[in-house]
Amino acid sequence: MTKEMQIELKNQEELGKKVGIKEIIKEKYHAAMDRYKRQIILITVFFIVVLIIVILTLIPPFNDPDKRYWVTPDVLLDNYAEPSLKHLLGTDQLGRDHLTRLFHAVRNSLAFGLITGLICTGIAVFLGVIGPFKGGAVDATTSFITNIALVFPSYAFIILISTILQIREWWVTMLVIALFSWPWAARSIRSQVLTLKERNFIKVSKMSALKDMRVAFTEVLPNVLPYILLAFIMFLGGAIIAEAGIAMIGLGQQNWLTLGLLLNQAVDYGWIFPSFSYWLWLPPGICLILIVLSFFIIQSSLSRTFEQRKV
């Protein structure tokens, strides 16, 4: 290896990453801590709580949501037991510990929201970014589809599809929700992309002979990331609520133990009427409120932060 080649190699390395990754992380961490202290604490607390719940669902005595409890083994089922020290949230009609089931439901609901949110965000980003960059007919079609979808009576279609498809699989509910909840995000991402498109750095990239789609995904998309993140969080909360709503009227999926399924059972097995088992149907709703509330607060505080950054 000649000296020149060595220098050349070194140069290329320097051009690629001038500063070590460690330093970048350190720098970013300090900057972030100064600015977004409250938000970071909020998000951390939320994730720790979620993590605790997920861990609890993996270890005994909370790892088996289907385990039945008996007063006298195989004879008398310990069902509809009121909250006590043994069962903090009582038991349901089959003598299963409700707290265990609640933990599992929270975990599964979050997983459900996560996947559905990802699908929604994917659709919204794709339609929001591709239109302004392809222009012409593509843009006209995508924005027309978005505009129509915005005023589409989506709930009616969600109910229609979930009733008529007799399959009560988790992916059906997921797809039905994803199919009808993306439009507003697609529109807001599109308007962001449209304003960014007028910026000169797009012209500069074009003068470096970048193709349109590459400009869209390497130059524009990173600048829209905050909005995408916000949309994703909104979708997450929305999907969890929508799943619960569909499930509660008896049209939801049946194979994941989610908060929706718990509420569905509340209706089907008469937890409200005639058995008045408040300990069975109040907690899932409160969990639902807490989850969506925390997503809402995270979302609004993040959006405030992003807006401050823009100024």
């Binding site: 910026r199 000169n200 750095f201 012209k203 500069v204 130059e219 990173p222 600048n223």
Partner: peptide, 11 residues
């Protein structure tokens, strides 16, 4: 271009 600030991708 006119505006050097908008000619760079701030990301």
């Amino acid at each position: 271009f006119q505006d050097p600030y908008s000619s760079f991708n701030y990301f």
